[in-house]
C-alpha cells in the first residue's frame, strides 16, 4: 500500500483571509470609535446595509464559481425596485411577484444565451445591464415619476419590521444565505457548479448537465437580486430607476475578497459573507471619520481587492508546482 497526499487537513489561508481581516478591522474600529461604532444601533445599520449586498453577492458567488460573471445585477436591482413600487397599487402579492417574475425571466434569458448559445457571460450580462436599466427608466416614465408604496401596505410594514434589533431584510438575507450554503455544498447541483467552473470540458466528459448548471446560476443571481430590489423598495417606500449603479462591481468585489477565484471552480459562500461585511464595515468606519469623504471607502475597497487577488495568484501558482 502506498500513501499519497496529506493526511492532515491544512490551514487554508486563501479561505480564511477575509474573516481574519474582518476581525482585525472590527477590533480596530471598536478600539478607535468605541460605542459609536460598536454600539447596537450602528451595528444594526451595518447589518441592514449589508443584507442587500449579501443577497446579490450570494447569487454572484454561484455565477462566479461556475466560471461566469453577472454584470446585470445593479440594473436589475433598480428594475426590481421600480416594479415593486409600480405593482404596489394592486397589493403586496403583486408588489413582490411582479419584480421576481421579471427578474426570473432576465435570469433565464441570460442563462440560455450563456449556457446554450454559448455567448460570453460578459457580453450577455452587459446587454442585460443596459436593457434592465432602460426598462426601469421606461416604467418610471424616464424617471419623472416616482411610484410611492403606501405606508399601510403589508409589504411596507414587513420591510421595516425589526426583530431582536435587526431589520427584516437582515433575517431574510441570512435565511437565503443559509439556503445557499446547503444548495452549494450539499446538493449535486452545487457540486456540479464547482466542477463546471473548474474544468468545463472534464465536466462534460463526466456526463454532468453543464448547460443546465450554467442556466440555473444566472436564474439564482437574477432572482436574489430581485429579492434585494423588493426589500430596498419596501425600506424606502419607493422605486427609483437610478439606484444600484455599480452594485454589480461591489458584489463581484465582495465575492473575490471572500476568496472565490474569479476564474471559477474554487471558493465559498462563507468567504462571500466575510467579503460583504468587510466592505460594509470599512464603509461605515470611514463615515465615522468625519474628515474623510465616502469616496475613501472605494479607495480602501479597491486596495483590498488587489491585495486579495495577488494573494490568490501566489497561492494558485504554488499549488501548480
Amino acid at each position: 500500500m502506498t500513501t499519497f497526499g496529506l493526511a492532515v487537513p491544512r490551514w487554508r489561508v486563501d479561505r480564511a483571509g477575509a474573516p481574519i481581516v474582518l476581525g482585525l478591522v472590527v477590533l480596530a474600529g471598536a478600539a478607535v470609535f468605541g460605542g459609536s461604532f460598536a454600539g447596537g444601533q450602528n451595528l444594526g445599520n451595518i447589518a441592514l446595509d449589508a443584507s442587500y449586498l449579501l443577497l446579490i453577492a450570494t447569487g454572484m458567488t454561484f455565477v462566479i464559481l461556475s466560471g461566469g460573471i453577472d454584470l446585470s445585477v445593479g440594473s436589475l436591482l433598480a428594475l426590481s425596485g421600480v416594479l415593486t413600487a409600480y405593482g404596489a397599487r394592486w397589493g403586496t402579492l403583486t408588489a413582490v411577484a411582479l419584480p421576481l417574475a421579471v427578474c426570473a425571466v432576465f435570469g433565464v434569458v441570460n442563462g440560455l444565451l450563456i449556457g446554450r448559445a454559448r455567448i460570453a457571460p460578459f457580453i450577455v450580462t452587459l446587454a442585460a445591464l443596459l436593457f434592465a436599466r432602460g426598462f426601469a427608466f421606461a416604467v418610471a416614465d424616464e424617471g419623472n415619476r416616482v411610484y410611492i408604496i403606501p405606508a399601510g401596505l403589508t409589504l411596507t410594514r414587513l420591510g421595516q419590521a425589526r426583530w431582536l434589533g435587526l431589520g427584516a431584510p437582515v433575517w431574510l438575507a441570512l435565511a437565503v444565505f443559509a439556503g445557499g450554503l446547503v444548495l452549494l455544498n450539499l446538493t449535486r447541483f452545487g457540486q456540479a457548479t464547482f466542477a463546471v467552473g473548474d474544468n468545463q470540458e472534464a465536466a462534460e466528459l463526466m456526463g454532468l448537465p453543464v448547460a443546465r448548471v450554467r442556466v440555473l446560476v444566472y436564474v439564482i443571481s437574477a432572482v436574489l437580486t430581485g429579492v434585494a430590489g423588493v426589500l430596498v423598495a419596501a425600506q424606502t417606500q419607493s422605486g427609483l430607476p437610478t439606484i444600484g449603479e455599480g452594485r454589480e462591481l461591489e458584489a463581484i468585489a465582495a465575492v473575490v475578497i471572500g476568496g472565490t477565484l474569479l476564474s471559477g471552480g474554487a471558493g465559498s459562500l462563507s468567504g462571500t459573507l466575510a467579503g460583504v461585511l468587510l466592505l460594509k464595515v470599512i464603509q461605515n468606519l470611514i463615515n465615522q471619520v468625519g474628515t474623510l469623504t465616502a469616496y475613501y471607502q472605494q479607495v480602501v475597497s479597491g486596495t483590498f481587492l488587489v491585495v486579495v487577488v495577488l494573494i490568490q495568484l501566489r497561492l494558485a501558482r504554488r499549488r501548480r508546482v
Binding site: 457540486q191 456540479a192 464547482f194 473548474d198 474544468n199 472534464a202 465536466a203 463526466m206
Partner: peptide
Amino acid sequence: IYQEVNLVPQRSVAGNLFLGRE
C-alpha cells in the same frame, strides 16, 4: 481514460470520484 487527466483539480478526490452521482 484520456491521456490528459479529465477531472476537476480543485475538488476533492472523493468529489471527483462521485461527481454527478454523489
